[in-house]
Design a protein around this nucleic acid. Structure first.
Lengths: 333, 333
DNA sequence: ATCGCACATCTAAGCGTTTACATACCACTG
DNA sequence: CAGTGGTATGTAAACGCTTAGATGTGCGAT
């Protein structure tokens, strides 16, 4: 009676509802789930990196925070809930068990970044629909949403070379395990190749933590002056922040002596001195879209697989060499 | 057989387990919850502020992020899960409905900051155990964990006055609706009163967003030079960041002309120029402790009410006037 | 006065597990 | 050979809710 259009006198219904409210009664969701065959919960899985030198900030949430907001907002509207779990990357077996257990508590799963092996993913996807956020586009068992890493990287390189005449670029790459890092890396190589004057003078294999930015800079500063790059392209903002800090303590002026650009547009970047020029990912939108797709797939499991890249945006601040007046955002192709 | 010590031949058990694994079978949690009367899920409620001028960063998660990590880690160990919801502060009735619905999906609730009216809280607490994080210590229907705002504020003021000889303080307060903001405000007044030479030259009623810091500074700069304060004590880091930014664009040197201290120790503070001196809340610990207590109360609902303040720490960086070499953390009483 | 219809109320099955208990089996011992 | 104890297997109830369908009631029409 409470839910459906049971044929009861309106006055009766009102009275019942009133008593329900007075008693503070709320139907038990487990029982409802049983009969409805739907839990009205979706899960969000992120990594909590446990590598010894990973910044706290990098661990798990921060990256995913905006995504989470988008998801939560979408879910809130239909009164579903969000279950979140941070998987430790130092224990794949444990992570898999954890994921299995969680898959029993939700109607669908959102998984951030390629943190789950393809086989494990396949097994989980057999139980509940899965949508990957910033995952590998090749994953056959899930829908995938990501950002257009190539266009973003291209825009950053283009700006550095064409607008600021920087030609000796250096790359601080992300961990090869991350699909996004791989795409940014190859896009950078292509973009450099596309500009006749520009060269890639070196590359540092980082792991997305600020410390890797610092280490990379030390490596750069160990070179003789004339072999140094004039711009550093980082695979994320964390590393860019680490790099800038290390450059400044070494007395290298940013951006005068060395331009630095990041990727992600995390909040802290705008607070830096100089403010960080970076490629913005529309994280919140990513969350909303991925969530919408997941809900759709929960309703109709047979939907064809869907892969989508959302546009990135070059956010011009000052670490690239632009002045305060030139700040702005450029939509990439 | 799968869980309990059913007396089956070990070989049989092994074979069954193997098939289970092969099929990827995972028992449905809703059914398990029914019979066990336990969902193995706890909920975390945070506010998502919808006031028009609230910084994105301030909304909900960022503040609670470390707490969330602590909670998640504690929960992960016992294989429970975390349900999170961001309540919009512009719709109390909707928030209450949402909270009720969520209370049906969890075994207990962690609620951040006094975002829920006491009556609503009482009704929810009647259904599931509730622990408040950074909530009002007076709340009769829940355990409460918070930070020692008084000691933290006292330490900050003491440092400013005794170490740096600042005597003309200015307060940028948080919203009176937040219990933490109220405590910091009264503690500031007490601390100033406790230092004979020091006076509180003014106070701005902010709302925890960076913009309120900027507005406060404009108000200060509108005063004649000699009536200006020489130090600003902010009720959180966001506002301190806004204040510093506004001071710097107005050409006021920080900390030389004006010292600024914050509260919270959010990550971005360390990245600022000058790095922000602030009072650190042990957020992660707060999360762990609150979570531990909640689990305990779920096991034994009749436990007596518990209120606890965790110690704050004065994190000395440079915005107070200290040099880079003097950085460090001071445990407050 | 009786029938039938619309409308209100009551009943019971079933969702996927766990668990307590009953039943069946086997080998051993008296 | 029957009785017994230890094990293995099978059965059914219960968890809290929804919902379809059975049952019951009151009214107007015949």
């Amino acid at each position: 009676m409470v839910h459906g259009q049971d044929r009861v006198r309106p006055s009766t219904r009102a009275r019942v509802l009133e008593v329900i409210e007075a008693l503070g009664y709320v139907p038990d969701s487990a029982a409802q789930s049983m009969v409805r065959q739907r839990k009205e919960v979706i899960g969000l899985l992120a990594v909590e990196s446990r590598s010894p030198d990973t910044d706290v900030e990098q661990q798990g949430l921060l990256f995913i925070e905006e995504v989470l907001r988008g998801v939560e907002a979408s879910l809130g509207e239909i009164e579903w809930s969000l279950l979140i779990a941070l998987l430790r990357d130092d224990d794949p077996a444990g992570a898999y068990r954890r994921m299995q257990k969680i898959s029993a508590k939700v109607d669908g799963l959102l998984i951030a970044e390629g943190i789950v092996s393809s086989e494990h993913l396949a097994r989980v996807a057999a139980r509940v629909p899965v949508v990957l956020v910033a995952g590998s586009p090749g994953e056959p068992h899930a829908d995938v949403f990501g950002v257009d890493n190539r266009a973003g990287t291209r825009a950053a390189v283009g700006h550095l070379v064409e607008r600021h005449g920087r030609t000796r670029l250096f790359e601080i790459a992300g961990p090869p395990a991350a699909p996004d890092a791989r795409e940014r890396r190859s896009a950078l190589e292509e973009a450099v190749a596309a500009h006749p004057g520009a060269t890639l003078t070196g590359s540092f294999q980082g792991w997305f933590a600020a410390l890797s930015g610092q280490l990379a800079v030390r490596e750069i500063l160990a070179r003789p002056q004339r072999e140094r790059p004039d711009a550093i392209v980082c695979a994320n903002d964390q590393m860019a922040i680490g790099a800038i800090r290390e450059l400044q303590t070494a007395g290298v002026r940013v951006p005068a002596d060395m331009a630095v650009v990041g990727f992600d547009d995390m909040h802290a970047g705008a607070l830096l001195n100089p403010p960080l020029t970076t490629v913005r990912q529309p994280m919140r939108l990513l969350g909303e879209r991925a969530c919408a797709r997941l809900l759709q797939r929960i309703a109709q499991p047979a939907l064809p697989r869907h892969v989508e890249r959302l546009p990135a945006e070059l956010v011009i601040r000052e670490s690239c060499g632009c002045g305060p007046g030139e700040a702005g955002a450029v939509r990439t192709a």
